[in-house]
Design a protein around this nucleic acid. Structure first.
Lengths: 346, 346
DNA sequence: CTGTTAGCGCATTCAA
DNA sequence: TTGAATGCGCTAACAG
């Protein structure tokens, strides 16, 4: 491939002039610039990013690691989707700023991640974003004062982090139900060993209490295992119990859209109409799924895209040397309620 | 960050010796090697990949572009999943070979892709894999004789490509139904402007004919639009028509698992039992979805992972200078039939 | 406005 | 088995 000398020679200028053109420095006569640009195009010349990085110690590369770090129980089926939206968003940021993204799946063990990090640093990535599959606490092998941002996860060492605001998400769903006149609510969450699950329960309870609900009208359950995924029997037992009550809840919040879908199928089987008899709210806003439901599901978004964008913004801030205020707290990204057809107004 | 000089100095050797150690060259005394390695560890030294690339003209970087190139109709919801598995697989190959992956979402327009390619080449990527969201023909701005492999797509210029063998996938599904004693089959496919749809119909017809089915017992339909996604009404109309026949099909193949799910829900509504009255086969093996169905769906895999692996292998082959035989034909990756509970034996 | 010189971190000669 | 010099392609100082 052609180098800067070839271009300089063809254009009849010095290499420095070419360098200036490449870097858009102002003090270049238009005619000179034109000559150089013509030569560049003619030779199909591309400045050698490695060489530039060497001189300027700026590679223009951001590293991203996705996947599972904590060896905790975890469903491989769930994994991925979220990472994808995160990657997309980060990539978007990179593209806008002319950076480029290096990516690797986390191999799992901490030692392997460290190895990966070493490889990234060999390529002089300017910073790294680690994106977890689901909201969780991780232990990332943190190279001292190397720009790192955690996305969809956090650690115990105040590494900058961006996470979904699960409590807020569940709270707005709850508030909405109350606004619609519901007074007996049930929350059927994911297993409570998950961070999101605990937070959402808090949000649910907060919403209920601030909505002035009677304590006995507030019901919550959590399914047992996350892997293998919530067996239908588990959910069914919970629903059976609640539906046969003297005063069953008039609205249900579920831990995710899939669970809501399952529940709605069961309701239908039982002759319970949606949303007339029972209102339902999911979580995740899995549009792919929802488009194919009989009743378009009202649900809460899991703002992966925004998390990715914010994580990038955050990393960018660090790279620009902006010291962010309260960077010791994870930034929480709010969810949004998507109103569709599964909540009735009473 | 420490450089090779620092290491040499600390170890009391010349930089060349350090270089030899880094590159695992044989002619080094063990004691010397140990000294150097100690120094490397102590200084947390990482060889500068850019500088190495400059000298050796081997960057160890593979570029990957994902997304939509053809501006054809395309459902944004569908996009992604497949790309994810492809990326994963490619990344796996890179990791094994000590390469690293640079990635970017295709911005859409051909000009922007060319821009991206330029950027990649600036970083001296050794080759590029382009992965499409779904099986389709694309027009990739092909830099002359630059290593490029298309995954999940192909072009008209004999660029090396790896695609799913849709005809084979639908054929094995069809064969299986016939083996199980079914004699009246229906195929409800995706819109026929999709490559996969046409191929699968071929596979279906081939399977039927080789299975000796009566022509009148072979039924096929295709849903209309892909965007917005198959409306339920469309599918429902097709099912209504087929179910009310004097001799309705005993088995249905659907264009994807979601459609199969939808159909099964409709069957249930109509009091049609699965698989007793009607057998169903999906496509995609979307495990996430299937785990939550009442009847575990028999389906055909879409081998994204294998496509990714093969695409990487193919690119690697090109980089190694191995001239692949019949590289002018896209490699077709076979699907697999996943037998679950929605097909009955008659 | 443009050119000269030096050196970034490394690998590749060629010597020792 | 090891080391000294040279240059990869580029940018940062400093001249002109």
């Amino acid at each position: 491939m052609a180098n800067i000398h070839d271009v300089a020679q063809l254009a009849g200028v010095s290499i420095k002039t070419v360098s200036r053109v490449i870097n858009n420095e102002p003090s270049i006569k238009d005619t000179t610039r034109a000559k150089v640009e013509a030569a560049i195009k003619k030779l199909d010349y591309r400045p050698h990013a490695g060489a530039r990085a060497m001189r300027s110690s700026k590679s223009g590369i951001i590293g991203m690691i996705t996947g599972v770090l904590s060896a905790a129980t975890h469903d491989p089926l769930e994994s991925g989707l979220s990472a994808m939206h995160l990657v997309r968003a980060v990539q978007e940021g990179c593209r806008r700023d002319g950076r480029i993204l290096m990516i690797a799946d986390s191999p799992g063990s901490s030692e392997e991640v460290a190895e990966l990090l070493r490889k990234f640093q060999s390529h002089r990535v300017e910073g790294v974003i680690y994106a977890a599959d689901y909201h969780q606490q991780v232990l990332f092998p943190h190279s001292e004062n190397f720009p790192l941002v955690l996305a969809n996860c956090f650690d115990a060492m105040q590494t900058p982090a961006v996470v979904p605001d699960d409590a807020q998400g569940q709270e707005i769903a709850t508030r909405y139900l109350i606004e619609q006149g519901h007074r007996r609510l049930a929350y059927i969450g994911l297993p409570d060993n998950m961070v999101a699950s605990r937070l959402r329960l808090n949000g649910f309870l907060k919403g209920c209490r601030e909505g002035g609900l009677d304590d006995r009208a507030i019901i919550w359950r959590q399914t047992k295992e996350f892997e293998p995924w919530t067996p239908f029997a588990d959910l069914q037992a919970i629903l059976d119990e609640l539906l046969t009550r003297a005063e069953p809840p008039t609205a249900f919040c579920f831990g995710n859209d899939l669970m809501a879908m399952r529940a709605m199928a069961y309701f239908k089987e039982k002759g319970v109409r949606i949303p007339d008899d029972i209102s339902v709210i999911g979580y995740d806003n899995d549009e792919m799924l929802i488009r194919h439901m009989e009743h378009a599901l009202t649900t809460v978004t899991l703002p992966y895209r925004e998390i990715g964008l914010e994580a990038y913004r955050c990393l960018d801030g660090i790279l620009q040397g902006k010291h962010d205020a309260n960077a010791d707290q994870p930034r929480r990204i709010e969810s949004e309620l998507i109103r569709r057809d599964t909540v009735s107004h009473i």
